[in-house]
Nucleic acid binder design. Structure first.
Lengths: 365, 365
DNA sequence: GTTAGCACTCATTTATTTAGAGTGCTAACA
DNA sequence: TGTTAGCACTCTAAATAAATGAGTGCTAAC
């Protein structure tokens, strides 16, 4: 056991022995806190390794060669690369279980309206973390149709109102060339409800559709249009509701705040539509803890290539899954963010359970 | 006619003779263009007055005393005060009739959906002017009810779908303690539609309501709730839709781009809800040209006290009035903005007329 | 393998200088 | 009496220079 270090040194495939790992960890932690390049001297004091700065320097030199840290310019300290962050969140991170201040209070207020509540989730997170947040409403993915109502608004327009599990409501105006009679309307309503209620999108297949059209007889054209609307409603992709908050927080991080970059980011947040990508990515990802982390270039949106994005998915009942994302600088406080996100996820799911079990007296959505 | 100047000099109550006016105008114009304090020498070249810089200096000194211009610091040029801007937009401005690039093209694409279209209006304006824009959907003020549909979704919930003139649709879930029968539903639907269709909010008064409740008999409680929903839908105040675009443009103007101020502004744009104030202010204002200008402190929102806000109201048919606002630095190009806004207003109103006259083949909402 | 020591680099800060824009005032002019 | 040239003065912004200091890499000694 002449030199313990030696033994460990070549064990790992990535060329990192324990000491290097410790040093790298220290560099990252320190950089997360300060946002400044960190030098050898700092590390030598910061860690319990009891090594001189010179030794640290040697190690850091190796770490640089391995691609974990870089110098922004000669004779500056080192900063972590994306590769280092990745390693960090994958293996080195200890999660802090973060208390979210009066989270419940703020949420409960808005319990009645789903959209208000999600908007609030975004806001609470933004205020608590000082990053920008994105919350998408639960996509009605694989979700079941609950109710359809066709109504004649006037001679040329009929209104299809579609309610899916979870009381998401969608309206679609359909224009018709000539008025439908009351009987037709009634027939259609019964037809649609008896056949479609309780079905998910996958079940509404071609056979089903032809069958329905046959039954509808001469009104099959309308049925077609209605089914399109239904499909759209169930799929719900097209206009996935997106709520954001704290876009202005971006300006708080100098590394993101230069006018061009910040402008693009803020624009992305304002336009919202691109943000749906985050949800999509997040939802199809790992369903284990439901947390995913994108660092730098990994981020699903071009404008965020200098950011890190942490996403969580939440699930309200059968297949109603939405996502929460936090966007910040690469040196974001991953521990805090992941902790906060997990708490929020649980909070949200609990709230839903409680609400739907107590057979709410209030209207929702 | 020894000295023509003398004759005009004391005519105006505000102490401005023609020459001073010309100089002030020149100062403002120049400052709008450059954003830099403007000095006497510049003016002496810039104008056709053929006066030396020294003379201009004397005049400017007077203008400063009168409160129209100030020096940001000794020995800098002068910049206009809010008072000067006010004078400028009130009396000196000549409107440029600005062509909006492919405005129509962009709007037509989105003709189908009102919300998409308004979102687009905001975007087009933001891109064209390089300022931030706010568009509010037409408030259904004094508007008429077109259609009501009550449907039973399940045993404890009924859905009220309300359509008002202009095909704005609103849904409300109402919880009931015990299921309603089919007959009751049918009765309610007929009752509501026969009595309420074509009515505006003002007409749905207490007498009406009691009358309806009587007719509904034991179901009067439900009727009450439905009427509440209707009132809310027609009033439509609560959640006035607000669309924004170009918030990032704020960062383009150094005088607004310092982190604190810009952050607040961007936040205001993201939260949206405060922006409804702009609409409210704008809608109750002068219905003549429909254009209003708020300079600095006059602005209806605290965060905009260093900005100017130009608003226009548009009217789609009877009483459906919405607003468009442009938010920029005080040195915004008022001529261009007012011109653009007027064009947009007309464009929008035309589009609506055309659309509602040709009895659209497409769905809207 | 570890460390002290030293020369060197380079971003950041601070001070100093310079240039230029602009003013106010005075005296002269038409 | 209004206009103007001229000049001293002020103050910002830009350019330049100097000082600081954090950090590195390398070498030689432990």
């Amino acid at each position: 056991m002449a030199k313990q270090k030696k033994e460990n040194s070549e064990v790992r495939a990535d060329g990192l022995d324990e000491r290097k790992l410790k040093i790298l960890h220290a560099v990252i932690r320190n950089y997360l806190e300060t946002g400044e390049p960190v030098g050898s001297r700092t590390i030598s004091k910061y860690t319990d390794l009891n090594l001189s700065s010179a030794t640290i320097r040697n190690e850091m030199s190796d770490l640089e060669e391995l691609g974990y840290i870089i110098q922004p310019h000669t004779s500056a300290g080192r900063i972590p690369t994306d590769k280092a962050y990745r390693l960090y969140v994958d293996t080195m991170m200890e999660e802090k279980d973060r208390e979210i201040n009066n989270l419940k209070g703020m949420l409960v207020e808005a319990e009645e309206k789903m959209d208000m509540m999600l908007k609030n989730v975004a806001k609470v997170l933004a205020v608590n973390t000082n990053y920008a947040t994105v919350v998408t409403a639960p996509a009605i993915h694989g979700n079941k149709l609950k109710f359809i109502q066709i109504s004649r608004v006037d001679d040329s327009q009929i209104l299809a109102t579609i309610v899916v599990e979870g009381n998401m409501i969608r309206n679609n105006m359909i224009s018709v060339d000539e008025p439908l009679t009351d009987e037709t309307m009634l027939k259609l309503n019964i037809l649609l409800n008896t056949h479609l209620t309780g079905m998910s999108l996958d079940e509404i297949n071609l056979g089903m559709i032809t069958h329905l059209k046959e039954q509808a007889g001469i009104d099959s054209k309308i049925v077609g249009e209605i089914l399109d609307a239904v499909a759209q409603a169930i799929r719900g992709e097209e206009d996935l509701e997106v709520y954001t908050s704290g876009a202005n927080n971006i300006l708080k991080y100098p590394e993101l705040a230069d006018n061009q970059r910040a402008g693009d980011l803020i624009n992305t947040f304002e336009e919202k539509q691109a943000l749906a990508r985050i949800a999509a990515d997040s939802l199809e990802g790992d369903a284990g803890t439901g947390i995913q982390i994108y660092i730098g270039e990994e981020a699903p949106i071009e404008a965020m290539k200098d950011c890190s994005v942490v996403t969580a998915t939440y699930e309200l009942g059968e297949g109603m899954r939405g996502s929460i994302a936090i966007v910040g600088p690469k040196r974001m406080d991953y521990e805090k963010v992941v902790g906060t996100l997990k708490t929020m996820k649980v909070e949200l799911e609990d709230m839903y359970k409680k609400k739907s079990s107590k057979k709410s007296k209030k209207s929702d959505q």
